[in-house]
Nucleic acid binder design. Structure first.
Length: 478
RNA sequence: GGCCUCAUGGUCAAGAGGUUAAGACGCCGCCCUCUCAAGGCGGAAUCACGAGUUCGAUUCUCGUUGGGGCUACCA
């Protein structure tokens, strides 16, 4: 069997969105699973839709997400060039060859004539008008500089059948396929032509792409057959949806990989999550590294139905990655987000970070989790009330001065020691330790819910600030 | 409109004629806990509909409905 070769062939029309990235990922996983090669090819034949800088975004996104290709425009390879606009002459050559083989023909019809072909419902179907042109006339008109396109010559009868590795047998009647344009009047090929030529010339064995090509694949097979080339295997992927009726798409400005990274999702989690959209590993393990994904990947696990992207679950996975991340790695990734917090620069960085690690799912939650440290001020005394902890305003009024007194004597201002001191205080007062800690924490944070307990926060604030806040609370309570 | 295709809880999904219809996220409850979070335990919640085939259909067939795609000198 031939070495497996797959490709990802995006068009440079903007950022790389999540659906495209998943297609790339599956192509990558499949090739690596089988010890094959993964190729990146840029499909920039539509000059009108080209967006400056998007090729660079494709490169950087794939590198960043670790979906690395063996061959591509920026890394080279034996099957280049890997940018379609640089292959223009190749397409022309093969288009002419296909004309000779009877699989295509020159067409000089004007847009006006095409438009006049509209039926009652407004649908246009080309009528093979130029198929009957004589060789002489074609040569004459080309020589005179008349613009032309090359169209595929699709049989009027019969049907094209192939076996998709995910969807099974697909059959389309040729009468339902139009004689599509293969080579545009500007000399550029359309996707419909270029993908066939390139996939063959680049030795692609498995074509992995979205379902939007499921029903047009028979016309590509017609070309493989006309050229006498071996047809590749086809693996069409179900779409990723934004909701039940909208596909996740660039056009709708939907999330790109970059957007998720900017929002602070763990990169590995994004890749891990999209791997699970439309593919089931057949085990109950969901958190998987790229290597594990390669190991477990199989075509049997690919589903047929559309999958809705669930941001909540993606965040959950991201959180799982953060929890298991080393502190050093976390720090490196979290720092840019930590800087967004009001508390940044005022407290020990590592302590701040460890307070937050394990409490967030995406990095951008960091600021909101610790901003409370800087939001201290007047607060409603009812915050002290807590039945479960047996805490009340009265109790707070009574013990707050004692808490202050005890803390004033503390020299080893560490979480562990502070905790010890307050627990001992609670014992001597015969008050539940939960009540003391609750009251202490409310007094120094003015918040009912905080990331971190009373003594953790006290340690972070430092002795001076802690006492200051206690004084403030004592004052407030009168 | 025509053609292709899809259909299990709110979401991702396993299951491929007989199951108490897995698991995960989310949700709810309880436990644990220095609040929150995490963690532990438990719970609610699904086979779109209608005909067949069969002793028996979530599972097979057909249809209906609904969703997606294609129907471009876009990919």
């Amino acid at each position: 069997m031939n070495k497996v070769r797959t490709r990802f062939a995006p068009s440079p029309t903007g950022y790389l969105h999540i659906g495209g990235l998943r297609t790339a990922l599956y192509g990558f996983l499949y090739s690596k699973k089988h010890g094959g090669d993964f190729v990146l090819r840029i499909e920039d034949t539509d000059t009108a839709r080209y967006v400056d800088g998007s090729v660079e975004i494709i490169y950087s996104t794939m590198r960043d997400s670790k979906i690395m290709y063996d061959e591509g425009p920026d890394v080279g390879g034996d099957y280049g060039p890997y940018i379609q606009s640089e292959r223009k002459n190749i397409y022309k050559e093969y288009a002419e060859k296909l004309v000779e083989l009877g699989g295509a023909y020159y067409c000089f019809c004007s847009p006006e004539r095409i438009a006049s072909l509209k039926d009652e419902e407004g649908n246009v179907r080309y009528d093979k008008h130029c198929l009957s042109l004589s060789k002489e006339e074609i040569a004459r008109r080309i020589a005179s500089g008349e613009p032309y396109v090359i169209r595929q010559n699709v049989p009027k009868e019969g049907a094209g059948t192939y076996n998709d590795l995910v969807y099974g047998e697909i059959k389309v009647d040729y009468k339902d396929i139009e004689d599509g344009i293969l080579l545009k009047s500007d000399g550029m090929p359309t996707y419909n032509f270029a993908n066939v030529i390139d996939d063959h010339l680049m030795g692609i064995t498995h074509v992995i792409r979205g379902t939007e090509y499921l029903s047009s694949t028979p016309k590509y097979n017609l070309m493989y057959d006309a050229f006498g080339w071996e047809r590749p295997e086809y693996i069409h992927l179900p779409p990723i949806m934004k909701d039940a009726q909208h596909k996740l798409s660039k056009r709708n400005g939907d999330a790109s990989y970059e957007d998720f990274v900017k929002k602070g999702y763990v990169k590995e989690a994004i890749v891990n999550y999209i791997a699970l959209l439309g593919w089931n590993p057949k085990t109950n393990q969901e958190k998987m590294s790229l290597d594990e994904l390669i190991q477990n990947f199989s075509l049997e696990g690919i589903g047929k139905s559309p999958a809705i992207f669930d941001d909540v679950k993606c965040r959950w996975l991201s959180g799982e990655y953060i929890k298991e991340m080393s502190f050093e790695e976390f720090k490196q990734n979290a720092l840019p987000f930590l800087k967004e917090s009001k508390a940044y620069g005022k407290y020990d960085e590592d302590k701040l970070l460890s307070l937050v690690k394990g409490r967030i799912q995406i990095y951008s939650e960091i600021a909101e989790k610790i901003d409370f440290l800087e939001e201290f001020g007047e607060f409603d005394l009812s915050l002290f009330e807590n039945q479960k902890q047996k805490a009340s305003v009265e109790l707070a009024k009574e013990i707050l001065p004692k808490i202050k007194q005890a803390l004033l004597l503390v020299e080893d201002w560490s979480n562990a020691n502070l905790f010890d001191v307050l627990v001992k205080l609670s014992e001597s007062l015969t008050v539940k330790k939960q009540a003391v800690l609750w009251i202490a924490r409310i007094a120094i944070t003015a918040k009912q819910a905080t990331a971190g307990g009373a003594t953790e926060i006290a340690e972070l604030l430092g002795k001076e600030e802690t006492i200051k806040r206690l004084d403030f609370a004592i004052n407030l309570i009168g």
